[in-house]
Simulated assay, not measured.
Amino acid sequence: MGEEMITLLADGREERIAGPIVPHGEPVLGWERKPHGWCRGDACVPAFRAAAAETGEGVDLVAFAGLLGRQAVADPDEGLIAVGEPADLPPGRAPEFEALTALRGTRVAVVFWASWCGCRYDLPAWEALHRELGGHGFSVLSVSLDRDPEAAREWLAEVTHPAVIDTDGRIAELYNVINVPTVVWVDAEGRIARPQDTMTATDTFRSMNGLSCERAAAALRRWVIDGDAGTTSRELRAPTGEERRARLHARLATWLFRAGRTAAAERHLARAAALAPHDLAIRRGLMPLNGVDPFGERYFALREELEAAGIAIYRPLPDWQGDEEPAAGATAPS
């Protein structure tokens, strides 16, 4: 079994490894075997704990991921394993990714959007806020949830703020983003100043979502200029175990769709939908890879399904929007 080659999707990379039982002497997820246990830098998993993942042939990759607090989903028939992010991130810290780390020392609004969401029309307004407030030590960092990078790039042609395309869903996983638009504020020291909120930069869909872009912009300016984030909440809302597993099934589905293995991809997409039916970043976001129009009948059927089940698509209204109410029956932008 140790000689079986599989494709591992982890830490934003894709690699071929000997597994799912990794032969003795090989590193596992960047960890190496030492006499006293498995180590990565200064961190170590003691030998007595690691023994639960070790076999006579090698190390069980899925079991070892579990020891690290990381979920894993394997598809032996397709030769795939996806490993998720650690669940025990430091409280109050913004999860690191390269573009955000490069902005340390700056207040950042991390703006999650997608070409399949009406919030794509907000990008010029976010760009205007980026330019207006840049002199106060502020930056917008937009993160597209598009799985196809070309779909996002045409909307980014005129922006000057830092922008990332989250093609494998890893950043959405780190920040527990279930739909767009979602915005997270990160302070200059890399701490969460305001966790995930539904926040708009234009009133294009106000009749549907009940949100005021003027109030949102005023709250943002108070934070950037006066340091008042307007909330006592300083931690991201954590995902459930089901949400974490759903994102791994979505990662496998994405890889399989790109490889032309549609039937297998659809199985994983269905499993993701069963685990996290409310996660539009998965269910709507993967429609284009499956040849489905994310603005078409399937999307509106999905909206009706969620509404009938009483599942809210948006996060609760931010406190600066307290006296605004969404239009009746409206749950998502077109």
Rank of each mutant, 00 (worst) to 15 (best):
D166I: 00
L123H: 09
H136N: 09
H161R: 13
R93C: 12
E150V: 14
F97H: 03
S139N: 04
F112D: 00
A102K: 04
T160W: 11
E98S: 03
S115A: 11
P86K: 02
P91A: 14
P91W: 15
E127G: 08
G92E: 09
P149N: 09
A94P: 00
E158W: 10
A151K: 10
T160M: 14
L123A: 10
R153P: 15
T106N: 06
A87Y: 05
R153Y: 07
L145T: 13
E132W: 07
R147T: 05
A99M: 02
T106Y: 00
S144T: 12
A151S: 12
P162N: 07
L103C: 08
G137Y: 04
P91T: 14
V140W: 02
G92T: 13
E154K: 09
L100M: 06
P95T: 07
L103I: 05
E150Q: 15
F138K: 04
L129C: 15
T106R: 02
D166V: 02
A152R: 07
I171W: 00
F112K: 01
G105A: 07
A82S: 03
L89C: 14
C117K: 01
T106L: 06
L123C: 11
D148S: 10
P162F: 00
A172G: 03
Y121D: 14
V83C: 10
H136I: 12
V108M: 00
E132Q: 12
H161A: 11
A94W: 04
E96D: 11
E98A: 06
R120W: 02
V164I: 09
Y121S: 11
P86I: 03
A102F: 00
L141M: 10
G105E: 03
G118V: 01
A109T: 03
V164D: 09
W155L: 05
A163I: 10
R153V: 13
A99D: 04
G134C: 04
T106M: 06
H130I: 14
W116Q: 04
G118L: 03
W116P: 00
I165G: 07
R147L: 12
P95D: 04
A114V: 11
